[in-house]
């Protein structure tokens, strides 16, 4: 109940941002929502089930390309976004069948190469995907401000949907089962959990919203190419955000998304030539000194009654 209330308070406040913010603020906020979707999605498989997936970039790029190809073949934008989500989901179901029997580091490495594999496939099919030259997407016939607002609301809606999914999942049988798997998969089998089916379901959930986010991103920036949408950082950042905010929690991932983006902006401005290195140092420090995330820190300072349950 408290989670729903929090969402019901925060979402309208965020929706009011275009009334006060300029286009720069809207662009930042849209990015935060996108990050939040990616972090929340990673949390479904990485946080709840304890499977450190590096496949986020694969789902993101797949969604971006699926939507771009469909739109270039005349499919309207929003249905193309939905199809991108379905494509990511089906791909995750197929991929999960292939690699979810691996555990720990083995799973991490297997998931890491998926984005590279897709990138190579895109590169080798230039007639279909534009290859290394990338793809243009249809331009929207809207003013610059109207476009900024449109994508702001689209990404916000997706982020809210992802948080809502997380809240439902946390209380569901599936979420409960994933937490059992995270703690001890063999023991989860013994109490009757079909861990293979559960992990695959968690993996699909971690893909579908990322696929849509990739599709919205492609429409937003109008142009995609393989190094951009299959970037390994797209896989790494969600993990950092979740660790930053709080692993396995509902509002940890969005919180981590906000903090990481702010850090990125500050670091980017001040360390233009070595911002990735600076970001790396910050990540190491955070993991060493804040292992349970910011949300745990906040809860320690302000304990509530609900925590006793």
């Amino acid at each position: 109940m408290r989670s729903w209330l929090t969402l019901a308070v925060i979402a309208p406040l965020l929706a009011a941002l275009p009334l006060v913010g300029n286009n720069y603020a809207l662009r930042l906020a849209t990015t935060v929502f996108m990050y939040s979707v990616m972090a929340q999605s990673w949390n479904f498989i990485g946080g709840l089930a304890g499977y450190p997936s590096f496949a986020t970039a694969a789902f993101f790029g797949l969604g971006a390309y699926a939507s771009a190809i469909l739109q270039n073949h005349g499919v309207p934008m929003v249905p193309a976004w939905a199809c991108a989500g379905v494509a990511a989901l089906l791909f995750a179901a197929f991929l999960g069948g292939a690699i979810l029997h691996l555990r720990g580091h083995y799973f991490a490495i297997a998931s890491l190469i998926v984005a590279e594999m897709l990138r190579e496939i895109v590169n080798t099919l230039p007639d279909f995907t534009g290859g290394g030259k990338g793809m243009n997407l249809p331009l929207l016939k809207l003013s610059v401000t109207a476009q900024a607002q449109f994508f702001f609301y689209a990404m916000l809606a997706l982020a809210v949907l992802t948080v809502a999914t997380a809240i439902v999942l946390q209380r569901s049988k599936l979420g409960f089962g994933l937490r059992c798997i995270q703690q001890n998969e063999s023991a989860a089998d013994i109490i009757g959990i079909n861990s293979y089916a559960y992990k695959t379901a968690g993996f699909c959930l971690s893909a579908v919203f990322v696929g849509v986010a990739g599709a919205i991103y492609a429409s937003w920036v109008n142009y995609i190419d393989p190094p951009d949408v299959f970037d390994v950082l797209i896989s790494v950042k969600p993990m950092v955000m979740v660790l930053l905010g709080g692993l396995g929690t509902i509002f940890g991932p969005p919180l981590g998304a906000v903090v990481l983006l702010l850090l990125e902006e500050v670091v980017w401005r001040n360390f233009l030539t070595m911002h990735v290195a600076a970001l790396g140092v910050i990540i190491v420090v955070l993991v060493l000194f804040l292992p349970h995330g910011l949300l745990a820190l906040i809860r320690e300072r302000f304990p509530t009654k609900a925590m006793a349950n």
Partner: peptide, 28 residues
């Protein structure tokens, strides 16, 4: 050793939920 970080009630509820025919987490 299994499910060390779960609460006592949740650990038992896991048994009820996946094998004991409880229909949802609350009932479990």
């Amino acid at each position: 050793q299994p499910f060390q970080r779960m609460t006592v009630v949740d650990k038992v509820a896991a048994g009820a939920l996946f094998c004991g025919h409880a229909s949802d987490v609350r009932e479990a």
